[in-house]
Design a protein around this nucleic acid. Structure first.
Lengths: 347, 347
DNA sequence: AACGGGTTTGCAAATGTTTTCATAACCATC
DNA sequence: GATGGTTATGAAAACATTTGCAAACCCGTT
């Protein structure tokens, strides 16, 4: 059971002080700036801390103007390959800075996002990271009013009001589409994610469509389907479209999960990739390179975004005065593997 | 910028009190037990809170003996399909209870796990969830000394000292192996995860090996390889083994990621599944059903574990006296899809 | 108008830590 | 052994909230 201090609670700084025969102030200094306490005293305190099993209390420290040491991350969803790499990088970068990560998922619901931001404010997070650039006004108002350092992740557009660290989703869409166009595709199926509450998905599709229309090609309504971020469901939806007689020569997938679904759909229908059908994704998730053939995709520097975001936020916390320009538009890279080829003569 | 209260900081409960012309105590009651404050007063406070943009401060509340409202989860890794479903369920179940989730990953390093537990103790989490049953003594000592309610997740063995919510990993291994045996396989390759700091992986392999040896079959050293939880690397390792002349008739994969790697390895070598090679996994991750053919596997009730764990911990926090018996051994289910068949006559 | 009972509110103490300012201890030098 | 200059420590205030206790209030009865 819990070892109790004098007052029946967990041992506090004053219990340690008593035992080490010093004042609480000295114990505080022992932790926050050990060098200014004499060696002999330090040893006595060290021993007392060890005997009592004292653990510092960050909640209390935050009272006197200190920080809580926890940083909030508000994310659409956790159980998805999309963000988990970034999450991991963010989390471990924070750990190296001695911070911990409070995380909350809103399930692509911006109204819920506002609630989560409020809840994280109650926890007095030292900083906040949100995904995407579009948020409810009350969400942003809350953050501003509380004066919480914040950054918007994953999407990048120039001239934003908030620090943003991400990449150009429109460009990602364009790069993928242009690759298909360059290979000679003229009939492309656009399988993209639901765009409500998801500016990233919207930007990608816009980029892709702009490229195609810029090439003077039409994009009929029937060539656009909305897929969830789920391999199984994407597979079924895309298979449904492919089964119809008039088959596109290529599929532009809003992300790798959808692309993987497309690949399986093709396999299940006996359609050869890339001979009879080309597929391109966005993301380059772990595992996309293992497919047979390997998925051609646009690589998103997920780990880098997580790392940069953590560093940026900690920097802002530690030097509140300095007005850093935390804007990073991470470079994208087209990864050509085996799922894209020129359209067959038949197509 | 941040809207400041009278004392230059964020508005506090006393700023609200002043503005509503009541005492701080009443404001406190307004939040914690609204019914005991009169309607007229309540309205005045509501207005003051709104005007000032006051946000309650959980860290402060915890001072007077209250809870911080955050629950810690210590996990081997985030960026992996393995845990993310559980994570999501855990997180959203906590949210419905008005709690937030502090999460930290140790990268399958139990020494680091101890550090993380200490760090979470400093944050005064109300409860703690760890993955697996084996932990450093100092980790457990820390939790006990601090009196933090804790639960061990993901693995289940009877008669544990700690509440545990998970499933029988040994049984999972046995179920998978027995399925292969029942189909007539006699030469099985065991592709399992590194077992240091991973009791789940060890239990699964033990279960599988026991089943095979119980059937009187040998398991030569060459039929056991260690794979990381990574599709690409698993694919390469397994392809290396399959390329060797003497090929097994089936692969037992320690989890679905490894199994997926095996499937791609087979495809890349032109080995037909299930005709020339059977593959079975453990986990039934999202997407495993989309493979062609669908992956035969043992389903782990990941979401259920997350949900149960969250409920159990919150229950323990809210009724510290009651001595709940929080032990759940979630049932497993063999999911037969298309990757397992009888060994070909040639095998 | 005084009374009575329940409901609502205020006062003040308590919580664990940091921090400012003042004092005490130390050490080298004369 | 007195002096002066560091350096190390202590006392007390401050932080934002909750809570036990007591006082004030309200409203219907006498």
């Amino acid at each position: 059971m819990a070892r109790l201090g004098k007052r029946g609670r967990l041992p506090g700084i004053v219990d340690v002080a008593e035992r080490a025969k010093v004042s609480p102030a000295t114990v505080s200094r022992y932790f926050n700036d050990p060098d200014i306490v004499r060696y002999r005293t330090r040893e006595r305190i060290r021993k007392a801390v060890e005997d009592l099993g004292y653990v510092r209390n960050r909640a209390m420290r935050s009272m006197v103007g200190g920080a809580t040491g926890s940083i909030g991350l508000v994310i659409p969803t956790i159980d998805n390959a999309i963000f988990s790499e970034m999450l991991q990088a963010f989390s471990s970068a924070l750990a190296t800075h001695g911070r911990t990560m409070l995380i909350a998922a809103h399930g692509y619901d911006l109204a819920r996002e506002a609630v989560l931001v409020h809840s994280l404010s109650e926890q007095r997070v030292d900083a906040l990271a949100l995904i995407g650039l579009e948020h409810r006004p009350e969400t942003l108002a809350q953050i501003e009013r509380q004066g919480i350092p914040a950054a918007m992740l994953w999407n990048y557009r120039p001239d934003q009001d908030w620090p943003c660290i991400g990449f150009d989703n429109e460009l990602a869409g364009r790069l993928a589409a242009e690759h298909l166009l360059a290979l000679g595709h003229r009939d492309i199926l656009f399988a993209t994610a639901e765009e409500r509450s998801n500016d990233r998905a919207a930007d990608r599709r816009r980029g892709a469509l702009d490229a195609v229309r810029g090439a003077g090609l039409p994009v009929p309504e029937g060539r656009r389907i909305v897929c969830p971020y789920d391999i199984r469901m994407s597979k079924e939806l895309i298979a449904g479209t492919l089964r119809a007689g008039d088959r596109p020569s290529a599929i532009f997938a809003g992300n790798d999960v959808i692309a993987q679904g497309a690949l399986f759909a093709a396999t299940s229908l006996g359609i050869r990739v890339p001979d009879d059908l080309s597929v391109i994704g966005i993301g380059d998730f772990r595992g996309s390179d293992a497919f047979e053939p390997g998925l051609t995709t646009v690589r998103i520097p997920a780990r880098r975004i997580g790392q940069l975001a953590a560093d940026a936020l900690v920097e802002t916390i530690d030097w509140p005065e300095a007005d850093f320009h935390h804007e990073h538009c991470c470079p994208l890279e087209l990864i050509v593997r085996g799922t894209c080829g020129s359209p067959s003569a038949a197509g």
